[in-house]
Amino acid sequence: MKVADFHYERPDSLAKALVLLSRDDADVQALAGGQSLMPMMNFRLAQPDTLVDLNALEELRGIREAANHIEIGAMTRYAMLEASDLVRKHIPLFSIALPHIAHSAIRNRGTIGGSAALADPAAEMPALLIALNATITAVSTSGERKIAAKDFFLGLYETALDEGELIKSISVPKALIENRFGFYELTRRHGDYAMAGVAIAAQHMAPLTGLRIVFFGVSDRPLDVTAIAETLEGQSATDTDIVEAACRAIGNQSLHGDLNADAATKTHLAQVVLRRALRGMNA
């Protein structure tokens, strides 16, 4: 189908964009890369009155190095992350995961901020941001605030962003030499949304410290089972110990089935991806 009619604005500054987005008398929607919003509008699942196109806002684009983290502008496209030396050097988990995010032509347009703001539970980026302990900077006409990724994703397409608030940038801590990362997803075709996937970050593997495990595609939001790590902290845990602990944690949650797999299958697939991701980390 074609999109329903809407009013289009393409502001040339963030300040102007925020004023447009602060209107509360109409359904105003920010347009980032458009790789999810445009399909939703074509299906008429979304019919905003006004579309505020952020693509002219160069101030929201770019990857900058700070002392302990990498600051990524919300409108930075996936293809720019893939091509970035800073990302390759300091955020190895992104480099492992990015080729799995949709297809090349989608990554040429899709943005990190757009993916975070959409909060699709099957998408990789929200899980990666939680696993990496990233911080999201939100901005509105009333100022900026920082939100930890673990507190940002609240449910199906639901985030901690308030009305009129935009993601300005995302800051990801730089990886240290002793950190280890893992990623695995099961898809029917390369680039499809995962039937189940997992992102793992550990400050240190043996003994195990600072382990974070975040599943995607199995619930209404990224499923963070990091709490299980507390029982394993400081031990020389084997893959089997980690998988068993994670399975206990998953067992306490109700996973969400979808058209391709019911909740029981998702539980099984979550274990499969976790085992494979751990194997990849130790190799």
Binding site: Y8, G34, Q35, N42, N55, R109
Partner: peptide
């Protein structure tokens, strides 16, 4: 609908002409 816009392949159905 894949076409090249400013040197990169994109989905022509997910970009507005005005963009």
């Amino acid at each position: 609908c894949t076409i090249e816009v400013d040197g990169v392949a994109v989905r022509g159905c997910l970009l507005l002409a005005v963009q």
